[in-house]
């Protein structure tokens, strides 16, 4: 028997296709909340893999906000995607504690191994590479998050594993 909690990471590759009906349903699930905007945007992204442009007016109507407000909120935060990400999402920490442990070199290696620049999705849609500012793994840096999975002490072997995973 194992006790404990399990962190849920987005069920990769099993995102639903956007439909206004599904979007409306998600919004309805959150209407009883105070300050529902961020929870709704998160739920949209978890369901569809990004926040579809068409969701914005629906959210605005339901929460009695202007479209500009919802759009402004969505664009303020680094997390919310405006278009689907690649099949694999690799986030590499570029903050100070990871820099101190050689992060400048490892992050460049990851980029090279994936043939993908930071902040971009490779043209074949296979991988998205993003910088991230601290995963709270600063005592076992440099660190990364690959498809929701945490990796500490990123070394050559780990980078090779990431590259292999992203080829699948």
């Amino acid at each position: 028997m194992t006790t404990g909690y399990a962190a849920t990471s987005a069920a990769r590759g099993r995102y639903e296709a956007w439909t206004p009906a599904r979007g409306t349903e998600i919004i309805a699930d959150h209407l009883a909340m105070e300050g529902a905007t961020l929870p709704i945007l998160h739920a949209m992204q978890e369901t569809f893999g990004y926040v579809p442009q068409d969701a914005v007016p629906l959210i605005a109507d339901a929460l009695n906000l202007s479209r500009a407000e919802v759009h402004g909120t969505m664009t303020f935060y680094h997390d919310f995607r405006h278009e689907p990400a690649g099949k694999h999402v690799v986030k590499v920490c570029v903050a100070e504690a990871c820099q101190a442990a050689g992060g400048h070199v490892t992050s460049a290696q990851v980029s090279k191994a994936l043939d993908c620049a930071f902040g971009e999705t490779r043209p074949d849609g296979q991988v998205t590479l993003e910088p991230i500012y601290c995963l709270g793994l600063c005592s076992c840096s440099p660190s990364a998050m690959v498809n929701g999975r945490l990796i500490g002490r990123l070394d050559d072997e780990a980078i090779e594993e990431i590259a292999a995973e992203c080829r699948s």
Binding site: M1, G4, Y5, L135, G136, L137, S143, L150
Partner: peptide, 16 residues
Amino acid sequence: SAHKIYVPGDAAAVAL
């Protein structure tokens, strides 16, 4: 159970 062992579920331990 007859025995009990602890394996951290902490994110740093998981990352390792």
